[in-house]
């Protein structure tokens, strides 16, 4: 099984990401209320690292701390950005399969690392509030639709 790119506990990365600020990559998050929040992170950091380091308040984001054991750092990208994000492992796909509001351009924030090429990218935090019927469908992960 391949190691996820960000298998270290996110807390440990905090120090590394506070290096010189001129080299940083800007990311525009769109939160669940549709508000845009702009943050900067160092190349090599994952989007989850960025959310934690910048203390962005996305409820419940990154519950398993970037160890590919949940889908709470689910983010949605434009097709154009998605193409630049690099390959997806089976293990990430497995977790994405359990995510609310899964799209063809969904990724887990803990598996997407910042690069210069991603400067100015937008990442949308999908709506997590679901009605009961929808919850059960997604829970089972696999209803015929």
């Amino acid at each position: 099984m391949g190691l996820p790119p960000s298998s270290s506990p996110t807390g440990l990365r905090r120090a590394a990401s506070q290096s010189s600020s001129d080299n940083k990559v800007t990311v525009h998050f769109v939160n669940r209320d549709g508000e845009k929040i702009t943050a900067k992170g160092s190349p090599g950091d994952s989007l989850l690292d960025l959310v934690i380091n910048e203390d962005l308040d996305f409820d419940g984001f990154g519950a398993c701390e970037g160890t590919l054991a949940c889908s709470t750092c689910h983010l949605v990208f434009s097709e154009e950005v998605y193409e630049k994000l690099g390959p997806v492992t089976d293990e990430e796909m497995d977790m994405l399969d359990l995510a609310y509001g899964l799209t063809d351009t969904s990724r887990l924030g803990c598996q997407v690392c910042l690069t210069r090429a991603l400067e100015g990218m937008e990442a949308r935090v999908p709506e997590s509030v679901a009605d009961i019927r929808q919850t059960q469908d997604i829970t089972m992960g696999m209803t015929m639709k």
Binding site: T72, Y100, T139
Partner: peptide, 13 residues
């Protein structure tokens, strides 16, 4: 039913 994220969301709700 559901995984930890399911419980998280339904508890937030």
């Amino acid at each position: 039913v559901g995984v930890i994220a399911t419980t998280m969301n339904n508890s937030f709700d």
